[in-house]
Design a protein around this nucleic acid. Sequence first.
RNA 1: GGUCCGUUCGUCUAGGGGUUAGGACACCAGAUUUUCAUUCUGGUAACACGGGUUCGAUUCCCGUACGGACUACCA
Length: 511
Amino acid sequence: MREVRVRFAPSPTGALHIGGVRTALYNYLLARQKGGKMILRIEDTDQTRFVPGAEEYIQKSLAWAGIKIDEGFGVGGPHEPYRQSERKPMYMKYAQQLIDAGHAYYAFDTEQELEAMRERLKAAGVPSPQYNSITRTQMRNSVTLPEDEVKALLASSTPYVIRLKVPRKEEIRLNDMIRGWVMVHSAQIDDKVLMKSDGMPTYHLANVVDDYLMNISHVIRGEEWLPSAPLHVLLYKYFGWEDVMPQFAHLPLLLKPTGDGKLSKRDADQMGFPIFPLDWKDPQTGELAKGFKESGYLPEALINFLAFLGWNPGTTQEIFSMDELIKAFSVERIGKAGTKFDILKAQWFNQQYLRSKSDEELGGYLLESLEKENISCTKEKAAKIAGVMKERATFPKDFWEQGKFLFYAPTTFDDAVVSKKWNDDAVKVITAYRNEISKLSTIEASAAKALLEQVTTSLNIGTGKILQAVRLSVTGAGAGPDLMMIMEIIGKDEVVKRMDFALQNIKVKVA
RNA sequence: GGUCCGUUCGUCUAGGGGUUAGGACACCAGAUUUUCAUUCUGGUAACACGGGUUCGAUUCCCGUACGGACUACCA
């Protein structure tokens, strides 16, 4: 069996899309399961689209997600360099090999000439004009031009590209691991540019050459590459590398949540969820896009969610750690159909992972928020608060956002609760309760509860009728975590103070 | 337009010639919680359509429709 060597090969043209993270994940899972290698290669052959910071962003994103690179950009390895722009000198040799074998040719057509050809064909009724086995005979290239002229042109450093000479009639077959046999007729493929006039290879050439040189065993990439996969198969054949051609797996696309179409940043912005793993500031526009990390998603939750977008284990288990995913993963169980992106499910995963953490860890999140607010709090108290709040939190920030009342006394009170629950009985109970509490040295939840029962019984008022009013006096709201625990956390003095404030400031609703 | 890929509850999906078509998210209801949330229980909800093949098709085949990707000296 061939060693499993997979690669994730992004272009540094901006932030890494969440779909890219999923592609990287599937590659990683296969590599780890088979004891193989995960390689990171930077495909920056289009220098006009290079965005500063994008490479670092990709590295940081993968690291955060827990996807470790064994070899490649930023890590090193036996096939350096792993940035295609730095491999520039290597590609010409391979293009030349194809020319020598008669599978590629020089083309000298200018942009205007190409445009003119397309216009002419369109006028003749061809919907999508191609540079192919037929049209190439009418263009300026080494197929049509006399050898002398080609040599002269090359010697005078006339700009040229190298194109693949795609045969007119040939059935190209490709066995995709997800889709099975895919057949394409060569007449559908145009004479793709292999080498650009700036001396850089195009994706097609660089990709195939590098996958070969790096001994890649499996190419797992997005479905958008499926139409050009037969072209890559042709390339392997012409190079004579068919026996080491990687196995292909084209992943279903991530679709927008509503309607149809590829998930885009626009959709994410509109619906208010992130699409990038980390915050990303566009260096050109200065625009800031929120990341999953900064939005409060835990990497384990994101990974679990992403793994299930297009794959399933065939069992009812849904919560998978990275190690469990590595064990359970299989390319065969990846679906064929595009997958709509449902952020609600991601939130559910986040909640599950959040709850599985200890109170101490969760308390840490609260401490982080408190630090920003310049509020001091002990670790023990933070952990205690986290314990009380954990069932109601989806994101780490929730501990602070839903627990502010523990640190700030209410200055206003929920009107709806006031009008419904704040009555003479409530005032009586709270007044008596407040006096009892003020006699205590500290509040303990179960004692506070017993004390309240005692007060309501002596006043002959049902506890249930006034509990919400008591809550209102302490927190300002009608709902929240266990009130007795809240009082225990806030402490005696503060509770008394808050009750006094409430008694003074809330007007009794006249029935 | 052409080529390729796809189509099971609203969403992610399991399944597969004979099933009460299963699970999860979301939603709804009941119970618990003297509140809300949690938790538990239950519920609504799907095989795109039309032809075949077959004793029998949601499952296999062919069409149709719908959707998507691709169609650059971008990846």
